[in-house]
Simulated assay, not measured.
Amino acid sequence: MLLVSCGQEGENGSQPGDPAATATASPGATATAVASESPVNGARTVAEETDDFRLEYSYPAEAGNIQELAALLDRRLDRLRNAMVGDSAEARADARDNGFPFNKYSTEVEWQVVADTPRYLSLSAKISSYTGGAHGNYGFDALVWDKERAAALEPETFFTTPEALEAALGSKLCEKLNRERAERRGQPIAEGSSDIFDVCVPLSDTTVLFGSASGRAFDRVGVQIGPYVAGPYAEGSYEFTFDVDDKLLTALRDEYRSAFTTRN
Rank of each mutant, 00 (worst) to 15 (best):
R96N: 14
R96W: 11
A134V: 14
A164Y: 06
R185S: 01
E183I: 07
E191A: 12
V113K: 07
H135P: 04
G186K: 06
E154I: 08
E183Q: 15
K172S: 13
S171I: 04
H135D: 10
R185W: 08
A182E: 09
P162V: 08
S171P: 01
R181E: 09
V113T: 11
K147L: 04
P118F: 04
N82S: 09
E183D: 13
K172V: 03
P101H: 09
K104D: 00
Y105F: 15
T117I: 11
E156M: 13
P118H: 07
A125E: 05
R179C: 00
R149F: 03
D97I: 08
G139V: 06
D94F: 15
R92F: 08
K104C: 00
V114I: 12
L173D: 07
G132M: 08
K172E: 14
R96Q: 12
A125Q: 02
K104E: 10
E90R: 10
K126P: 00
S128K: 15
K172N: 09
E163R: 13
G170R: 11
E183N: 13
R184A: 10
W111T: 06
S122C: 14
E180L: 06
K176T: 06
E108D: 10
A150I: 07
V144H: 03
P155M: 06
H135E: 05
A115G: 07
I127R: 11
S122R: 06
Y138I: 00
L123N: 06
K104N: 00
K172M: 07
K147E: 02
F158V: 05
G170N: 08
S106K: 00
N82F: 01
R96T: 14
E175I: 13
Q187S: 04
E180I: 10
Y138R: 14
P162C: 04
I189Y: 06
